[in-house]
Nucleic acid binder design. Structure first.
Length: 368
DNA sequence: CGGGAAACTAC
DNA sequence: CGTAGTTTCCC
């Protein structure tokens, strides 16, 4: 958490100068702060300024009694007035101020400031948005902030100094440098609490806390994965059957279709649908061959699950059920069955049959 | 609010 | 061109 003391002129550390004025607090039962409700990691959509400010806040990570929670945090070992500041920082270590900023009801020009003074000393943030800076403006904004930081650091109290040409150039380079590598798709929230000093001004800064990462849901390589629809929900344990799957936006080189089985002790089996990048249609559909079940001589149907999985970060979608049926290789039996499905066929088979628009699961599983 | 889609941009 | 990423627009 070493945002303090980073030189604004150091291209590696960059934007570290907003926080200074750290004063030591008495060490007995030190006040401290904790995030009691983390922001939800995925599913939230960063907004550009051109989209206007009214698009709702980021939710908390949990859902309680069917209600979404909000990010919240609490000051411990202290009751009284406190100022809480929320800012966006990067996921780097050490964290640096992000080009993106927080917006919402409690925010003004890029930072969120609230005052609390209650028994529970909880501050909650029902309306925190993330303002997405356009890529083309990143360097410019970074530079602005670096200069601001420099001013703040070098104008303690008295008259403000101007940057030398050399310093200006250094800042410019640093900004360009960081603009190239900064990840616009993810931020963390940094919460800082300030308690009043003897004069009643909020200068006693408590050690800040950081939220977990928040990923922009508009960005394909970090967004939520979702299976929208599949053209079949069952197939032969022998695998190799063609299957169509519609999904929310994915990237063709970074997506897998994972079939798996697990119990309370963990994963039992997994295999992946077979397809290449060209089988991903416009980021919204995947055509693939089902994998074979590890036991291709099963006697009864086996329920497994299918989910999308992003190779790069291992993220997965919610799973959909899929059923493997015993493979039928015997031609004669196939013909017999086609004419007259036997009575002892599991009831589930017939149910699936009627649900499956692309044809009977029984037939599919028989077809070579 | 939340979401989809159009419009523009960069390969 | 076509695809995908980015930004803007709008229901």
């Amino acid at each position: 958490m070493d945002l303090i003391g980073c030189s604004p002129l150091d291209p590696d550390l960059g934007l570290g100068t907003q926080i200074m004025n750290f004063s030591e607090l008495p060490s007995t039962q030190e006040p401290n702060i904790t995030i009691i409700e983390q922001p939800r990691q995925r599913g939230f959509h960063f907004r550009y300024s051109c989209e206007g400010p009214t698009h709702g806040g980021i939710q908390g990570s949990r859902v309680l009694q069917n209600k979404h929670t909000h990010p919240a945090f609490k000051v411990f070992n202290y009751i009284g007035p406190a100022k809480i500041v929320v800012q966006c920082v990067t996921t780097d270590e050490p964290p640096l101020l992000h080009v993106h900023s927080v917006v919402g009801k409690q925010c003004t020009n890029g930072i969120c400031e609230v005052y609390i003074n209650s028994n529970d000393m909880i501050a909650s943030f029902p309306n925190l948005g993330i303002l997405h800076v356009p890529r083309r403006s990143v360097a410019e904004i970074l530079e602005e902030r670096l200069v601001q930081g420099w001013r703040k650091e070098n104008s303690e109290g008295s008259q403000l100094k101007e940057l030398t040409e050399e310093e200006r150039e250094h800042i410019h380079k640093a900004a360009q440098q960081r603009a190239k590598v900064i990840d616009l798709a993810v931020v963390r929230l940094m919460f800082t609490a300030y308690l009043p000093d003897n004069n009643g001004t909020f200068t006693l800064r408590l050690e800040p806390v950081l939220s977990g990462p928040i990923y922009d849901n508009k960005v394909p390589n970090t967004c939520d994965l979702k299976i929208v629809r599949m053209d079949r929900v069952c197939g032969s344990a022998a695998g190799g059957e063609e299957m169509y799957l519609l999904c929310d936006k994915v990237q063709k080189d970074d997506i897998q279709v994972r079939f798996y089985e697990q119990d309370e002790n963990g994963p039992l089996w997994e295999a992946f649908g077979k397809f290449g990048p060209a089988d991903v249609h416009r980021q919204y559909a995947i055509v693939f061959k089902t994998p074979k079940y590890y036991n291709n001589s099963i006697k009864n149907p086996v329920s497994v699950l299918v989910q999308l999985r992003r190779r790069s970060d291992g993220e997965t979608s919610d799973p959909k059920p899929f059923i493997y049926y015993p493979p039928k290789q015997d031609k004669e039996r196939v013909h017999r069955k086609r004419k007259k499905p036997s009575q002892d066929e599991p009831a589930q088979n017939r149910r699936q049959e009627s649900v499956n628009g692309r044809g009977s699961c029984i037939l599919s599983s028989i077809t070579v």
